[in-house]
Amino acid sequence: MRAAGARGALLELDGLAFDPILHHAYKVAEELQPDLDKARELTTLADRLVCAYPVWWGSIPALLKGLLDRIMLPDFAFTYREGKAFPEKLLTGCSA
């Protein structure tokens, strides 16, 4: 990666300290723990996101799902628009 002139950051889920449960859905804004703030910051800086994980019962592991649930929130990753069936994407210029 670096030989090609690219920079990267590694975020290892097992080393993060955060509550993976979205306790109140989107009804109440929950304060983000510092590691969730870090994950959000790295997400906004990225041109590409690469997730490497084992398939767990045909899906992503619960901890990764919890991370995504906690950081990909309204007004960060997307926003709802009245009269629109789908939310507007806010994280543009990045692919995963």
Rank of each mutant, 00 (worst) to 15 (best):
R2T: 14
A3C: 12
G5T: 14
G5S: 08
G5A: 10
G5P: 09
A6T: 08
R7T: 15
R7N: 13
L10E: 11
L11T: 10
L11C: 15
L11M: 14
L11Y: 15
E12R: 15
E12Q: 15
L13K: 13
D14R: 11
G15Q: 14
L16Y: 15
A17K: 14
A17L: 11
F18N: 07
F18D: 02
P20R: 00
I21Q: 01
L22I: 00
L22V: 00
H23Y: 01
H23P: 00
H24A: 02
H24Q: 02
A25C: 02
Y26L: 03
Y26Q: 07
Y26I: 07
A29M: 08
A29P: 06
E30M: 00
E30I: 00
E31W: 04
Q33P: 10
D35T: 12
D35F: 05
L36F: 01
D37I: 13
K38N: 10
A39D: 03
A39T: 12
A39W: 02
R40C: 09
R40D: 05
R40I: 04
R40H: 03
E41W: 08
E41T: 14
T43F: 12
L45V: 06
A46Y: 09
D47H: 12
L49W: 14
L49S: 12
V50L: 09
C51F: 15
A52W: 08
A52T: 15
Y53H: 15
Y53D: 11
Y53I: 09
Y53W: 10
P54W: 06
P54T: 04
P54R: 03
V55Y: 11
W57N: 14
W57M: 09
S59G: 14
S59A: 14
I60H: 08
I60G: 08
I60Y: 09
P61F: 00
A62P: 01
A62D: 06
A62N: 07
L63A: 13
L64M: 13
L64N: 07
L64V: 09
L64C: 08
L64K: 09
K65L: 07
G66D: 01
G66C: 03
G66M: 00
G66S: 03
L67W: 04
L67N: 06
L68D: 01
D69W: 01
D69L: 00
R70I: 01
I71Y: 02
I71L: 02
M72A: 13
L73R: 14
A77V: 03
A77F: 08
T79C: 10
T79E: 08
Y80S: 03
E82F: 00
G83F: 00
K84S: 11
A85M: 06
A85N: 06
F86R: 10
P87C: 03
K89F: 04
K89D: 04
L90T: 11
L91I: 12
L91P: 03
L91Q: 10
T92I: 10
T92H: 09
T92E: 08
G93L: 01
C94F: 07
S95I: 06
S95M: 03
S95A: 05
A96T: 13
A96P: 04
A96G: 15
